[in-house]
């Protein structure tokens, strides 16, 4: 239950930052929090209480490994989604730089050419 609440709270914080804050860098931070709320949730899904890292050592039987290790799949998913989040964040920063170059400000209210 905790993990659902945690993910929901972080998701909400990220969403708030992304949609409500007017400063573009705060929006970027909001995006990162949003991404990592989901990542955290995914990692927690795969967590086994008292589990070992999902790396098989020499001399370990397959059964013992499968029984004791945490689920590696969510970790692979999270790695991928971190990469995607990184790409998004980078693009967002690059766009912010463009906007700064044009308007001399990172305040979303100063962006004037598109209304509605």
């Amino acid at each position: 239950m905790t993990m659902y609440v945690l993910a929901a709270v972080l998701f909400g914080v990220g969403l708030y930052g992304l949609l409500v804050k007017r400063h573009l860098l705060k929006k970027v931070l909001g995006l990162l929090i949003l991404e990592h709320a989901v990542n955290l949730f995914l990692v927690e899904v795969g967590y086994v209480d008292g589990g070992s890292p999902p790396i098989r050592l020499a001399g370990e039987t397959a059964a013992a490994f499968a029984g004791g290790a945490v689920d590696p799949l969510p970790q692979a998913l999270v790695l991928t989604s971190i990469v995607i989040g990184l790409g998004l964040a980078m693009l967002m920063v690059a766009l912010s730089l463009r906007i700064y170059e044009r308007y001399g400000s990172l305040d979303a209210d100063r962006m004037s050419e598109l209304k509605g």
Partner: peptide, 12 residues
Amino acid sequence: PDTADSEKGADA
């Protein structure tokens, strides 16, 4: 505008 294309690390 660098695209920071980011898909291939997925398979790491």
